[in-house]
Design a protein around this nucleic acid. Structure first.
Length: 464
RNA sequence: GGUGGGUUGGCCGAGAGGCGAGGCAACGGACUGCAAAUCCGUGUACACGGGUUCAAAUCCCGUACCCACCUCCA
């Protein structure tokens, strides 16, 4: 079976056929680094990380480009409000984003280009579009350059919309535009309100790039005129992706073969950016949950399904994940093996992580059953480790910051182990003496310290 | 107005014509001194109304409600 992927452009699940055999070029529209990332923001990162891992697993040589938008209206506005340079805000938020991705074991892409580092490439592309009659400099002296949507007959093809059916932007400033739907490729510097650091030289005067042009320029630079998969959140389909495709193709570049869009995560039925926000930033959620649990939660729903975020659901996911970990803890350590067929089938079907997770649970249940009867579970351990690994959920992955990388923590856990071991010895003695009141008192005492006791045929063990 | 998506059991969440994905919770049982952990078992769920079919959660028609995007939101 081949890997199949839902393509937004054709609205169907299609076999994935790379442009060049054995290779895959991926481009993900990353974030505008203007505020702390929240749970919704990182979904696309996690989804594309799984996609990347899956394609690699299938033997493809993956080039993965994920950009960051480090200059735009919001960054300028927020920075001004906070009284600091825009580049300082963007850089700080970029570092926050890096931390969030790292905490969720989202592997770094091949390269993470930023808009401000690619102004020459954008200027060149805009020049090409003007030369081909698809763009024009505004005649009002604003220094803006617009893409001429009427000059590109297939404008709207990605989202199946006719130009005349589109609502004219109510908030757009029509000045200098030939058609209200024309979008900015270059925005002239407004010297009264914008800092000089936010302007770059260009043939049309100082200014800064429009939003869409950066992705066309950077995808072209790192992946070439044609590449395999382009993705982002559903909201980006229009106008962002539509515009990217129009301007790239108008410049003679075939652009993406497949379009992949992940659905939203909402809270209380609202977009996260509009709701309570603060409690759902990644750093805030990580105060109560481990990154591995949050990642597991995000993968329990299919990437094209809308997720209504709730801490109850996150609790459930975390509880379920602990059962998987519990099996691994109790089973003898073993080697990672090959993936079960059912898991491969699930993943090949448009990254069916929910069905894949079901296979994971089935394997864990079977492993636990064998464990109870004292049978060999090395096959189950091998399967579980392999599945967790491609999903980026391997508990031993150093990305989770496991013990061992912090000497003090290792010492501390050794100390706790010694203390608990002493208490467990006393409890074992009490149990042997049938002094259950005392045995339970010891267990309660340990529990009060946040440590759980489990009695196993091999003696008591503790977890926290 | 245009375009796209949704409504599944107490909860989360798959599936897309034919044996009830999976998880969390609950209840019963096994194990245990009691627990915990684990295993086994227990549910006639598919918004509503019609229709097609031997067979519909799945296809068709209609209705209701919800959501997203329509020029710088992941």
């Amino acid at each position: 079976m081949t890997f199949r992927l839902y393509d937004t452009a054709t609205r169907e699940v299609r076999d994935f056929v790379p442009l060049e055999e054995g290779k895959a070029g991926l481009y993900l529209c990353g974030l505008t680094v203007q505020s702390e990332p929240h749970v919704g923001h990182v979904r696309s990162g996690v989804v594309f990380d799984v996609l990347q891992r899956w394609l690699r697993h299938r033997g493809l040589d993956v080039t993965f480009i994920r950009n960051v938008t480090d200059i735009d209206d919001k960054i300028l506005t927020k920075a001004a409000e906070q009284g600091r340079p825009w580049y300082n805000l963007a850089y700080a938020m970029h570092r926050e984003l890096d931390r969030a991705y790292a905490a969720l074991n989202v592997a770094p892409p091949t390269y993470e280009p930023g808009a401000t580092g690619h102004v020459p490439e954008m200027v060149e592309l805009i020049g090409e579009l003007i030369a081909k009659g698809h763009a024009y400099a505004a005649e009002d002296g604003s220094g803006d350059v617009y893409f001429d949507v009427r000059s590109w007959p297939s404008y709207g093809e990605l989202t199946r919309q006719g130009i005349d059916d589109m609502e004219a932007a109510s908030d757009a400033d029509p000045r200098g535009k030939r058609d209200p739907r024309d979008f900015a490729l270059w925005k002239g510097w407004k010297k009264d309100t914008e800092p000089a650091t936010a302007a770059w030289p260009s043939p049309w005067g100082p200014g800064r790039p429009g939003w869409h042009i950066e992705c066309s320029a950077m995808a072209g630079k790192y992946l070439g005129p044609a590449f395999d998969i382009h993705g982002g959140g559903v909201d980006l389909r229009f106008p962002h992706h539509e515009n990217e495709q129009a301007q790239s193709r108008a410049a003679g570049r075939p652009f993406a073969s497949y379009w992949m869009h992940n659905a939203w995560i909402t809270t209380a039925g609202e977009k996260m950016s509009k709701s309570l926000g603060n409690s759902l930033t990644i750093p805030a959620v990580l105060e109560s949950y481990r990154g591995i649990e949050l990642r597991f939660y995000l993968l329990m729903a299919h990437y094209r399904s809308h997720v209504e975020f709730s801490f109850e659901a996150l609790d459930e996911a975390a509880a379920g994940f602990r059962r998987i970990e519990g099996f691994l803890d109790r089973a003898p350590a073993g080697e990672q093996g090959d993936l079960p067929e059912a898991f491969v089938t699930a993943m090949d079907d448009d990254l069916g992580t929910p069905a894949a997770v079901a296979v994971l649970y089935d394997t864990v249940r079977e492993g636990n059953r064998l464990l109870a009867t004292g049978d060999d579970v090395s096959a189950q351990v091998a399967d579980v480790l392999a599945m967790l690994d491609v999903l980026g959920l391997h508990p031993a992955d150093p990305a989770w910051g496991g013990s061992g990388d912090d000497a003090r923590l290792t010492q501390l856990s050794g100390a706790v182990d010694a203390l608990v071991a002493g208490l467990l010895e006393q409890r074992a003695q009490a149990r042997a003496d049938k002094d259950f009141a005392r045995a339970d008192a010891i267990r309660d005492q340990i529990k009060a310290a946040g440590i759980e006791i489990e009695d196993t045929p091999a003696g008591a063990r503790w977890t926290w």
